[in-house]
Amino acid sequence: MDQAGNGEYLPLVGDFMSFNEIIETLNRQGHEFSFKQVPKDVFATLFPGAAEVAETFSYFEAHTYLGSNSSDEIALATK
C-alpha cells in the first residue's frame, strides 16, 4: 500500500522522551548520569546568545523539535 512517496519526507523518530526518561534509560545500562533543569531566565545569562538558545529550547519544549503538527507524520513514519 502506497502511503508515502513521491519525494515526501518523513521524520525518523523512535519515541518522545523527557530528559529524565533518557537519564533513567541510560542509568539502567550502567551509567551514572543526572539532569537538573535550569530556569530559562538563569540559562539566558550564561553566555552571549544564551537568551536566543533559551527561546529555541522553549519552542522545542512546547512544540517538539519537529513542530506541533508532526504527530501524523511521525505515526506514518513509525508504521
Results as ranks from 00 to 15, higher is better:
G67S: 08
D15T: 13
Y65D: 03
T25L: 12
P48M: 09
S70P: 00
Y9F: 13
T78Q: 14
F33K: 05
L66M: 09
A54K: 02
F33C: 07
E8Q: 15
Q3W: 11
Q37F: 08
G49T: 09
S68A: 13
T56E: 10
D41H: 13
F19N: 09
Q37W: 05
E24I: 03
A51P: 02
V53I: 08
V42W: 09
N6M: 14
S18P: 01
R28Q: 10
A77K: 07
D2T: 14
I74D: 01
G14W: 05
A44H: 00
N6P: 00
G7R: 07
A62R: 11
A75K: 15
L12R: 11
D72A: 15
L12I: 08
I23D: 01
D41F: 13
H31W: 12
F57A: 03
Q29Y: 08
F43R: 08
E8T: 10
A75Q: 13
H31K: 14
A4L: 12
S68Q: 14
D72N: 14
S70I: 08
T25D: 11
A54M: 05
H63C: 08
P11I: 02
D41A: 14
E24G: 02
V53T: 05
E52K: 08
E61F: 00
K79N: 13
N6K: 11
I74V: 15
Y9E: 13
K36H: 05
S71A: 09
A54I: 00
K79P: 01
E21K: 06
P11K: 01
R28G: 08
E21H: 08
